[in-house]
Write a protein that binds this DNA or RNA. Structure first.
Lengths: 210, 210
DNA sequence: ATTTAAATACCAACTTATTGGTATTGTGTA
DNA sequence: TACACAATACCAATAAGTTGGTATTTAAAT
């Protein structure tokens, strides 16, 4: 067991106020030492090169390099660093994906700071912290609106403002294929326009950065 | 001059972590007493009915009732409450509008927490705090990409996923008129699809809540 | 009094998106 | 092996969005 003052925490979030907020919560509750912060994944990875970090708290919605990409890289390069993911949304599929990647915890931002404290303490004791998954375990239901990998890929390109034609060129696909995927996404999310598609997809956390 | 411990502050933000963050900054720097917080404008207005508040710190991007709408209501109903607006973006036109409405300060979230502290201190001394406007004063430039009130109104409806036809019905306009406004928005923001229009408009802070 | 800008409205040609189908291939699983 | 599903591709009809114009009215500013 590492003493609290020797438990090194790094934070990545593109909102400075949230960085400061987390930093304060960590300090006030003596959960560890914040050895640095970052506004995106690249900065966090740079930080990890120079400093010994036990826990990385990462926002999933960051520009440049989002939380999922960053988490994958960290697990690959620094398997000893525990990862706690913060997100605005409660997307069960995303949480499951992150758990498989190897992150230690997932917290929705709509939760109180108490949960952050609990999450850090739990991870510090080398346990996983996925309160949303546990809840889901009780009220288990097969989600029909799951999007496939390809659908998510195309969705993120649509969200960036690309047309079906442009996407088909970029992915070396037929325009028809892209339109089929688009259509299936719309059916699954029960919408009937591109804007609604993107709005709902963001709401449900299928698109990580706008 | 009100003593710090008697300076009552209310905070409105839909992110609990930011609420906690601001609360901590206020406490740690002994800037006042946080007498309550809210997740949207309605909650904040309810709070003001029951508690004496000297300063309301309001996030501009909130669901249900956004920061601008909330600020207007507060100025109307509680003209003695000072307002500090927080935003993710640096939209000079928005800041000017807020200043005219009567808010006392505007802070971009990309700024450090030092600025929040400075902002609260400045407003407490009954001065305005608009660091972005002051900067703008030096590098003054007439912005050609200003959107009109009507354009902003239509833009926000487009962002909600409504079609031109639906918008024309809702606003009792010809569909042609809506399409003209849409076209002019797209020209001004230099885009050529709805999704790009909404993306850029959000980036520039023309759309306050998604 | 003249100019400028916002808001309104219309037309036509063209491009994309949307809806509702069908169909094939490969992969992994019951 | 048979089944389910993801990924691919195609067709056709309809709806919506995009582009490039013109034009009128009203209100505010010079």
């Amino acid at each position: 067991m590492i003493a609290n003052q020797n438990y090194n925490i790094a934070i990545a979030d593109d909102h400075k106020l949230i960085l400061a907020g987390i930093r304060n919560i960590v300090l006030d509750n003596q959960l560890g030492t914040v050895v640095g912060d970052a506004s995106n994944g690249f900065q966090l990875l740079q930080l990890l090169q120079h400093k010994k970090v036990h826990l990385a708290i990462i926002d999933v919605n960051m520009p440049e390099m989002n939380g999922v990409q960053t988490a994958k890289k960290i697990v690959e390069l620094y398997p000893d660093v525990a990862i706690l993911i913060l997100s605005q949304y409660e997307n069960i599929e995303l949480i499951k994906e992150l758990k498989i990647i190897g992150v230690k915890g997932y917290l929705s931002k709509s939760f109180e700071s108490d949960q952050l404290i609990e999450g850090i303490k739990t991870i510090k004791e080398n346990c996983n912290y996925f309160p949303l998954l546990d809840r889901e375990h009780i009220t288990f239901k097969k989600d029909k609106t799951q999007l496939t990998t390809r659908e998510l890929e195309i969705l993120s390109l649509i969200a960036k403002g690309k047309t079906s034609k442009e996407i088909s060129c970029q992915l070396f696909l037929s325009q028809y294929t892209v339109e089929t995927h688009r259509k299936n996404c719309m059916r699954k999310l029960e919408v009937n326009s591109t804007i609604q598609l993107i709005n709902v997809a963001k709401d449900k956390g299928y698109i990580l950065y706008e």
